[in-house]
Amino acid sequence: MSATTNHPMVRFEGVTKRYGALTVLDDLNLEVGRGEKVAIIGPSGSGKTTVLRMLMTLERIDGGVIWVDGEPMTHMQKNGQMVPAEPKHLRRVRSKIGMVFQHFNLFPHMTALANCTEAPMTVLGLPRREAEERAAELLNMVGLGDKKGHYPAQLSGGQQQRVAIARALAMRPKIMLFDEVTSALDPELCGEVLQVIRKLGSEHDLTMLMVTHQMGFAKEFADRVCFFYQGKICEQGEPKELFTAPKNERTQQFLRAVLEAV
């Protein structure tokens, strides 16, 4: 608790994830510093989305420990031993993390504003007025100040995704996870969403992990890029290095294939 303010914000320590006989993530070790922006790239099935989902506790892990802000999240210390975390502990640590999904997952029966006030009111217990003020502020920030009363179905995909970002931010997370947030969007709508993320990165001290197929964005925005292949980090480094002079043969192959597709 005391002096170690320089601990990493997120630490995966020997984390393993299996689906039946298939090992999706194999002994993953990864540290993300405070305020660092990490882009995760790789072919489909390489386990990159699973990394985010495990951190958000949407997937149970089969081995290892995930640390968040200096304390174990998946486990807790009891009588000097590490035991699997109880729900209460999980909820406390999880409150530091927010996530934006590929398919938005907005609540269809609530307006944009209500989507952003629901959790602050029910989970954090904020009074309605305060929650609404903050939600309005966030919706302004993502450029949707005039859409507060709209239902998700009345918004475009890009607008929905921006509401989803505002909704996650309303919980004041320290860590934001972006899971392929532009993959379900028409190409012309990606820009507005990426612009919001750019703004977040420059104005806030958020730690960000993003799984993305937008190599251009990863290159320009991330502090570090991790290339996943078959459940392992195959290569990582600064974007300039990794994109211009990849050392690993798999990385070279992947980047070549992505370039050809454009």
Partner: peptide, 12 residues
């Protein structure tokens, strides 16, 4: 995805 969103928002 609706359940997952509620987890991400830390709802019980």
């Amino acid at each position: 995805g609706q359940w997952e969103a509620t987890t991400a928002l830390n709802m019980t």
